[in-house]
Computed example of a mutant assay.
Amino acid sequence: MSFSDKPVVVFSSCLLGEKVRYDGSSSEDQFALKLKDFVYPIKVCPEVEIGLGVPRKKIFLLKINGYRVVQEETKADFTSDLNRFSKNFLKSLKTVDGFFLKSKSPSCGVSGAKTYKNPDRTGYIGRKTGLFALNVKRYFPYYPVEDEIRLKDFYRKYYFLTRLYILFYGRSKGYGFVLKNYPHILKLFNRSRFADFEKKPDKKNLLKIFNSPFTQKVAEKKARNFREKILNDPDFRKSYVLFPYQLIG
């Protein structure tokens, strides 16, 4: 299969309607379903892949000598299994442009997984990144990695989609193409890192442009009324939207 005509995105299977959650349900997400039609989707449920089955006992995130994943009732530790699967799966990806993962999950949550310091699930310390998502960020630094809750924010969604398509264009059309056609967008994200990419337009330098978040505050400094212009100004949109507009409109 050729992946040269559309971006490749890894999705948590439950977001696309597969009934693989611990209780046998799905977490079907409308934006994930919409995006799926514009990309090549690769579906994965790390918990099912390590043999936990459907339905299954809940697992949770524990911070003891690093992050661990433990089953709530049995206290079984699945950290090694989940890390092993994550490493093998991620290394098997010959082509990928981004990741769309399930929020709050102890395996896939990008930042919202409830985390504890004691094996009896006491000592709540906040919401952290799930184990599979941690591995994604380790093996694919600066790639677009988000979950469905975080993508409800307009600026995160714009940044996610723009990075996704810039990486896709870079691998399919060449990094010189990206430099020639989208310098204004890259400068919007990171002007200082853009200078390095301009000197040497390769994947490594392109990814480093994405080493900081793109927030409303950042956007407004670059272009006043950024959101409103994207949504309502066709000329501005033509310059700053390089993905299918219906994904954000």
Rank of each mutant, 00 (worst) to 15 (best):
S4C: 01
P7V: 05
V8F: 00
F11M: 08
L15A: 07
G17W: 06
R21K: 12
S26G: 06
S27N: 14
Q30M: 09
F31C: 05
K36N: 14
V39H: 08
P41A: 01
K43S: 14
P46E: 05
V48F: 10
I50V: 13
G53Q: 05
V54A: 02
K58W: 01
K58H: 09
L62V: 07
N65H: 14
G66T: 03
Y67H: 14
R68N: 15
V69S: 10
V69E: 13
Q71W: 01
Q71G: 07
T74L: 03
T74N: 08
K75C: 04
K75Q: 11
D77V: 02
T79L: 08
T79G: 13
D81S: 09
D81T: 00
S86Y: 02
S86V: 03
F89Y: 13
F89G: 03
K91F: 13
K94H: 12
D97T: 04
F100G: 01
K104E: 11
C108E: 09
G109M: 04
A113S: 15
K114F: 07
T115D: 14
K117R: 12
P119Q: 06
P119C: 06
D120Q: 07
F132L: 10
F132S: 03
A133M: 10
N135Q: 13
V136A: 05
V136S: 01
K137Y: 09
K137S: 14
K137H: 12
P141I: 02
I149E: 15
R150N: 12
F154K: 12
K157D: 06
K157M: 04
L161K: 02
I166E: 00
L167E: 11
F168N: 01
S172C: 08
K173Q: 09
G174Y: 06
G174M: 06
G174E: 10
G176I: 09
F177P: 15
V178H: 13
Y182G: 08
L186H: 11
R191W: 05
S192D: 15
D196K: 11
F197C: 09
K199V: 05
L207I: 06
F210L: 00
F210C: 00
N211Y: 05
T215S: 15
V218Y: 06
E220R: 03
K221P: 09
K222F: 12
A223M: 11
F226S: 00
I230A: 13
L231I: 11
K238F: 03
Y240N: 01
V241N: 06
Q246N: 08
I248Y: 12
